[in-house]
Design a binder for these strands. Structure first.
Ligand SMILES: [Zn+2]
Ligand SMILES: [Zn+2]
Ligand SMILES: [Zn+2]
Ligand SMILES: [Zn+2]
Lengths: 178, 178
DNA sequence: GTCTAGGATGTTACGATATAACATGTCAAT
DNA sequence: ATTGACATGTTATATCGTAACATCCTAGAC
């Protein structure tokens, strides 16, 4: 198990903006999770239909490699740098495709997108956004989702999709700035 | 108890867009809840500081009277029609003020704002957004919030604010289009 | 009453995010 | 080869949100 900031992206401050999205602010082997996610993406497309075309694949790998939440225009500029069309619809369409298959999540509080860390598995994402370091973690939100459905059922509402996002302080930032 | 569409806004189709925000898709006396919310707003300002100036008061009553989620520019155009400044910062500042005091909620999935239905009471809002009729209900989300905090605690994350929003079908629309 | 400092509002200008609409291209099945 | 479905490229524009600065109002100090 590798410490993310120590070994995976040692010399890439990568400017400010929404940051890391890892399982729960915990370290992990990033190259491995990227490869796994890409393989899962192929499998999902094979199963659910739709082709993982070059733009779509590149969009996904951009999000996986960045390993943090990126704005659509940030993704777009990287796509353009790689020779793909540089207009907004290109990236929004790719993101739509990936979102529809659960390979990418949208984080509404940030107007940003992040690669899913559990592609292929049915799950409810819960995003924890640190206001100290801008890190974003995708945590399992199954329990929260169940609780939400119970609350909704009390009013007769049938939940189809839920967005669960919280802001606060990650473990590291709690120590620094309590 | 009055049936909202029958007696409160009988002749006002009010165009499409995000719709009603009532306690749980249930009917209620709207003039009463508007007056109560305004009184609560005065009390909150007296207690927490800040003045409920004309623009701010009017912004709040616009949301209360619309009784649904409104985009900032929708609110703005109504403010302008009432003689208040017609520039975006006017409405965004008023909305910021009201949000900071819990008198208005922001609904991120809709890029819209709705008057709080429990002003003055500490509470976690849970928004239920119907994809059939675009109605929006603010339900009590205390239980969901507790569940979310438990999930976050498992990763050492300290939750400060949470947005809980679900899309699905309201009771009425479930019957019509199951 | 005047002065003054902080807060509130008005206004210009711009930045950031997202989509509509249409043209073009690709590919696999007939 | 033809065709139809899907995918991409491109132009233009819609929608949402903020920075920065000028002006004004108001409450307390004197
Ligand atoms: Zn996920
Ligand atoms: Zn942090
Ligand atoms: Zn509320
Ligand atoms: Zn409905």
């Amino acid at each position: 198990m590798l410490r993310y900031n120590m070994s995976i992206r040692p010399a890439m401050p990568d400017a400010p903006g929404p940051a890391l999205a890892d399982p729960a602010f915990a370290a992990h082997d990033h190259t491995r999770c990227t490869a796994a996610a890409l393989a899962a993406a192929e499998a999902v497309c094979a199963r659910e239909g739709g082709r993982l075309t070059p733009v779509r694949r590149r969009t996904l790998t951009i999000l996986l490699e960045a390993h943090r939440a990126l704005g659509a225009y940030e993704v777009l500029s990287r796509l353009a740098a790689d020779g793909f069309g540089g207009q907004p619809p290109v990236v929004y369409r790719a993101l739509d495709f990936l979102q529809a298959r659960g390979l990418v999540h949208r984080i509404r509080r940030l107007n940003a997108f992040a690669a899913c860390l559990r592609p292929g598995e049915a799950h409810q994402a819960l995003f924890l956004i640190c206001r100290g370091c801008a890190a974003v973690a995708e945590a399992p939100g199954g329990g929260v989702r169940a609780s939400l459905e119970a609350a909704a059922a009390a009013t007769g509402f049938a939940v189809e999709r839920a967005s669960l996002e919280a802001t606060g302080l990650c473990p590291a930032c709690r120590g620094e700035a309590p």
